[in-house]
């Protein structure tokens, strides 16, 4: 198993190196296009991966979190509102993480403490998040549909040394810290999940809670913490949409990305690296859609087919290569065994 993983990593690194060499040996115009595709892939993947990894923390602990969409909206809204009032995007990020965590905590407490149905509660979170943010949008900005433009968004990291390079320039020279954080988070999450006691406990509470309980660890706490982490990350993903990539909050601006994040989580088989891969894959397919529309104008009448191609590819890929195995004790409330 380990050996297989090792070879896989070697193959991946080799593929990336070969790909990059291939790209930089192409003509300048093509290099620019490739650079744009790479940057769009990363940008579109970021909210998906953040929310997806968040969902993983929740589901690995045994709590289904289909409320990611609502939590992302909450994060996007709070991030924008706090930035608008305090004129500081970092405070905005803090606010979005807190708001996402708070809404997720409600979900977690309902599911874990009050033994509510996870999907019912998650649906409630989605509805509440959508409605509440739209309502508050009017309160904060006195406008309908879309809030005021936020001028002070999360500053991009600019690397001037590579700015003029035809491939690395468009791909990496202007990069949002949140995008960088996405990669860091994947590594951290992998470490937390597989190399720390908390990760072990989290996985145990999703796979076999009674063992965890008999070891003297509170299953409830571990699960609630997992859900709260998921909310924080999903909130951050939402904030990236409103104050990182975009620059205003608009109603229902996540446009179903919470559900796609859910799909990315399952596609990535509930592992951080898998989710990163799935998120990047979805992001790339998004970019591919735009790429075909822009560079193949003769296909204009078939733009709908181009747009649906990514979705079909996912179905085919899932049907051909991957078997999804969710955590065993997922969505099952844990009742302590009564002591006689």
């Amino acid at each position: 198993m380990n050996q297989r993983r090792f070879f896989f990593i070697i193959a991946l690194v080799a593929a990336i190196i070969i790909g990059v060499i291939g790209i930089i040996s192409m003509p300048v115009q093509q290099q620019q296009i490739a650079g744009w595709l790479v940057s769009i892939t990363m940008q579109m993947a970021t909210p998906l991966v953040l929310a997806g990894i968040g969902g993983m923390y929740s589901e690995r602990g045994g709590v289904v979190n289909i409320g990611l969409e609502g939590i992302m909206l909450m994060g996007a809204f709070t991030g924008a509102a706090v930035t608008y009032y305090f004129d500081n995007p970092w405070l905005g990020i803090l606010g979005s993480v807190a708001a996402g965590g708070l809404l997720a905590a409600v979900h977690g407490v309902i599911c874990v403490k009050y033994k509510g149905n996870h999907i019912v509660s998650g649906t409630g979170v989605i509805l509440f998040g959508t409605g509440f943010t739209t309502l508050m949008l009017e309160v904060v900005w006195h406008q309908k549909g879309r809030g005021e433009l936020i001028t002070n968004t999360i500053p991009d990291i600019i690397i001037p040394q590579i700015q003029s390079h035809p491939f690395f320039g468009p791909a990496f020279s202007v990069i949002s810290p949140v995008v960088v954080f996405m990669f860091v988070l994947t590594a951290i999450s992998w470490y937390i999940l597989y190399r720390t006691p908390f990760g072990l406990r989290l996985r145990a509470s999703g796979e076999d809670p009674s063992t965890l309980d008999s070891a003297g660890v509170s299953v409830e706490w571990i699960r609630v913490v997992g859900v709260i982490i998921s909310g924080c990350l999903a909130g951050l993903g939402g904030a990236y949409l409103s104050i990182g990539f975009g620059s205003a909050f608009a109603k229902e601006m996540t446009a179903g990305r919470g559900f796609i994040a859910l799909a990315a989580m399952i596609f990535g088989n509930w592992t951080p690296t898998g989710i990163l891969g799935a998120g990047l894959f979805f992001g790339f397919l998004d970019g591919l859609n735009y790429f075909i529309q822009i560079y193949f104008p003769a296909l204009l009448p078939f733009s709908n087919y181009i747009a649906m191609l990514p979705f079909l590819l996912v179905v085919v890929a899932l049907g051909l290569i991957r078997k999804s195995v969710p955590p065993k004790a997922i969505a099952k409330p844990y009742e302590k065994e009564k002591r006689a």
Partner: peptide
């Protein structure tokens, strides 16, 4: 000339500003 020099794209969504931004990024890059 039109096929060579005019880029036309659709967001397939009336509200998703992210889609609009991506398409525009691509067109400016092109």
């Amino acid at each position: 000339n039109i096929l060579a020099n005019v880029s036309i794209g659709y967001t397939d969504d009336w509200v998703d500003t992210a889609a609009g931004k991506n398409l525009a990024d691509g067109m400016y890059a092109a």
